[in-house]
Design a protein around this nucleic acid. Structure first.
Lengths: 225, 225
DNA sequence: GAAGGATATAAAGATTTCGTAAAGAATTGC
DNA sequence: GCAATTCTTTACGAAATCTTTATATCCTTC
């Protein structure tokens, strides 16, 4: 039985040390990251069984890191936070956090919640690369290849094609896409979508006038295949 | 979209009422049980999407009920308790509870944890496909396949065939269909229906002159099979 | 089997939705 | 601080879809 790996993302050295000792003495293998950025890179290079994410990080808000991780990481993420306000908890859970614990937490409870979270880990589709014919979309590296050639896509363009790739074959409504990419205030800005779908098609489609990957479902949204 | 069912097992009538109102106003279907025994029976006869289990029950300890449920019930169980002691939490989680909330809890947090728990119940490629011989209608992806080949259908056409698929074998009156697809002001626009049924038949039927899927019930409506 | 109401089909007209180009605004990188 | 890139907005022609009309066919009932 090899040890389950847990990645701690927390900027406080003391907290990392405390958590590290606790977890190691309970037979977990511990990985650590000081910043969100570093955490994402570590998680990508070697996906752990569970991530403990402090939400009060210096570089980005923990919520952003959580969203970023959840674009491809589908194992458990437990949020640790000094915050105990409801909005924070609700946001984290709705962004895909597995659990939320307020600091200071009780060790035995933390361990029990970790056991529970690991037990429930779904069989992961551990590939972060979505393959769609001549296209390969790497959700971690944030790259798009067409016939093995790297395409130059902007950040928003990538977010869009990443969303498509993660929902291959199903129709996504305009509202849904706009909410996911631009946020809840933009759900009626359908024109944004038209422009960005247009520029994506120019890049990924053999013939942009007759798209084979991004199909428009008139009156509803788009479908990727 | 039918409502997710939640079973509340709690001996306090007030708490059941409070939870019931909260959940129902958030579009869940609520089932209630006063005792653990009753709860187990209810859950067995009609497994809900999630169980809210109070741990301070009179007949058996909630922990026993939890264990009993977990022998066969594998969806989410959230524990509610006035207790906030660590042993209790750890025991519950190790017995397979999905989550543990101490009373009094905050409503928004409870709802977020319920959403999270239900979300995790679903298998990643959760599709609800209606199979009708050579036709497969995917209600989530909004796609129609005939002999495994994607058909191009417009938004209204899909809404129509989706309504048919969800009421397979049943005669739907003109008025009902018109109300569902176009809204209450259109219940007499029978000609709309004729046109759209016609175009659907052209796409899905082997021989549109002798339809096998969308059957005309003259003077009444249509039936899908 | 004939009459009359109900249904089917085709096609024209009306409306909505889409795609593209391009200009202005904001952001990023050097 | 300037140039380059990216994002947001506007405008307009093109395409797809929906609605309506006309006419042919089918079905039921007597």
């Amino acid at each position: 039985m090899n040890k389950a790996e847990i990645l701690i993302i927390d900027d406080e050295p003391q907290m990392r040390k405390l958590l590290g000792i606790t977890l190691e003495s309970n037979d977990y293998k511990v990985l650590q990251a000081e910043t969100g950025k570093e955490g994402v890179i570590q998680a990508a290079s070697h996906p752990p069984e569970l991530i403990l994410l402090d939400i009060g990080l210096p570089d980005k808000s923990g919520h952003e890191i959580l969203k970023e991780l959840r674009q491809w990481y589908n194992k458990s993420i437990i949020i640790l936070s000094v915050q105990n306000n409801e909005t924070d908890i609700v946001t984290a859970l709705d962004n895909g956090a597995t659990d939320y614990l307020s600091k200071p937490f009780r060790t035995a409870e933390l361990l029990a919640r970790i056991r529970s979270a690991i037990r429930r880990n779904q069989t992961p589709n551990d590939t972060s690369i979505v393959d769609a014919g001549d296209l390969q979309i790497d959700l971690v590296a944030r790259t798009v290849k067409k016939n093995n050639q790297l395409l130059k896509v902007t950040s928003t363009e990538f977010n869009l094609i990443s969303l498509f790739a993660r929902n291959e074959g199903r129709v996504l409504t305009h509202r849904f896409i706009l909410k996911e990419i631009w946020g809840v205030g933009y759900q009626t800005e359908t024109q944004y979508l038209r422009v960005f779908v247009g520029s994506l098609r120019k890049k990924i489609e053999e013939n942009p006038n007759n798209p084979l990957h991004i199909i428009t479902e008139s009156g509803v949204g788009y479908r990727f295949q």
